[in-house]
Computed example of a mutant assay.
Amino acid sequence: MDKTLIVTNDFPPRPGGIQAFVHSMACRLDPGQVVVYASTWKGGQDGDGTEVAVFDAEQPFPVVRDRTTMLLPTPRVTRQAAGLLREHGCTSVWFGAAAPLGLMAPALRRAGARRLVGTTHGHEAAWAQLPASRRLLRRIGEGTDTITYLGEYTRSRIADALTPAAAARMVQLPPGVDEKTFHPGSGGDAVRARLGLAGRPVVVCVSRLVPRKGQDTLILAMPRILAAVPDAVLLVVGGGPYAGELRKLAARTGVAEAVRFTGPLPWEELPAHYGAGDVFAMPCRTRRGGLDVEGLGIVYLEASATGLPVVAGDSGGAPDAVLDGETGWVVRGGSPEQAADRIVILLGDPELRRRMGERGRRWVEEAWRWDILAERLKSLL
């Protein structure tokens, strides 16, 4: 692999799925052949950049932080990226998110890059729907050698905005799952004991608390679930801006005693919290006329790796992360009735849960391991 400059807004310690994706891929490349150019982050408990500095120092490759918290393809940022490319002798570039950073591709090619790869997520599919951003996406496709996509949903929408030649060069590159971290023995029993859930049927949802993810749909489904499984509990794992509304909804719906909120958790505690569930459910839905959509839903695959059956919403690319009827089911996003019906069936059938969980685990091992997907990225670079 040629030496690669990774240009990205999405990089830890800033939290998020794209951040984890880019970092996990970077860590599976040859550390001597990687340089990261990223925005900075003022979050964390200190807010003064200390957390970022400590994180960067622990990485096996150089991380160069821009002074801004949001990299945009401005002349200054483009000059900085071109300077890093030449300084470190990089001949390939990976844009952690193609839009908008991929607009720098022509300038970086002039600076010496021979291979340029832009990775798309969910938001590029939304870009493809609006005339102005659609034109920019087309330029990104023309300037890069390859645009990657998460699954068929995002591919079809993004390809429609590209030239036929750029669309033909698209390659699937989804995030992977660490099957050694997410596994059936991840520590769920200890979490159940600590939360006082031992012996109770547990529906778990691990995700950021925002309206699209569908935690509200699960809360609205709980009366129907409790009518069939009276001791069931919904374990809502994660933090986010929707947390307060969700707590109020649980109280208004009369199910507050059957809904547990963990709040934000460090990443290393998530595998055990998946393992605390009998069923994983995140009935995500598409919002804002298709502009707020699920790109893939790696949480379904992490749950499958943990041996859980999954109930997914039909938003965007979420169905790409489920073998419907084999590893779980896809329901209409925003339908408490459909979510409840599938969850009740799973809670009442241990053999079905076992069969779907085992099939999901095998699927992750066959197709979604990080090492398989990192080799694909290496070949593109």
Rank of each mutant, 00 (worst) to 15 (best):
M1H: 14
D2M: 05
N9M: 12
D10A: 14
R14G: 06
G17Y: 13
A20T: 15
A20S: 14
F21I: 03
H23C: 13
S24N: 15
S24H: 13
S24Y: 09
C27Q: 15
A38F: 04
K42S: 13
K42R: 15
D46C: 10
F55K: 05
E58K: 11
P60Q: 02
P60W: 02
T68P: 10
P73K: 09
R79N: 01
R79W: 02
R79G: 02
R86W: 11
H88Q: 05
G89V: 07
C90W: 06
W94R: 02
M104P: 08
M104W: 06
A105N: 08
L108T: 00
L108Q: 01
G112T: 02
R114C: 10
R114W: 03
L116V: 15
G118V: 01
H123Y: 03
A125Q: 12
A128M: 05
R134N: 12
R134A: 13
R135M: 13
R135Q: 11
I140Q: 06
E142V: 12
G151W: 10
E152C: 09
T154R: 00
A165E: 15
A168D: 14
Q172R: 15
P174G: 06
P175F: 07
G176F: 04
V177Y: 04
P184F: 06
P184T: 03
G187A: 04
G188A: 03
A193P: 04
R194W: 01
L197D: 00
R200M: 00
V202T: 03
V204K: 02
R208A: 10
K213C: 05
G214E: 14
L218M: 11
I219W: 09
L220Y: 09
M222Y: 07
I225F: 05
A228M: 06
V229I: 06
L234T: 00
L234M: 00
G238Y: 02
G238P: 03
G239Q: 06
P241R: 09
L246I: 14
L246N: 09
R252W: 12
G254V: 01
E257F: 08
F261M: 01
G263E: 07
P266Y: 07
W267Q: 09
E269N: 08
P271T: 03
A272R: 09
Y274F: 15
G275H: 07
A276V: 00
G277H: 08
V279W: 00
A281M: 13
C284F: 03
C284W: 04
C284H: 11
R288S: 07
G289C: 12
E294N: 11
E294C: 12
G295S: 09
V299H: 07
E302V: 04
P309F: 03
P309W: 04
A312Y: 05
G313I: 08
V322I: 06
D324E: 06
G325Y: 00
T327E: 12
V331C: 10
V331E: 05
R342E: 03
V344S: 12
I345F: 07
G348Y: 04
E358Y: 09
W363V: 02
W363H: 11
E366P: 12
W368M: 11
D371T: 15
I372L: 15
I372F: 14
I372M: 13
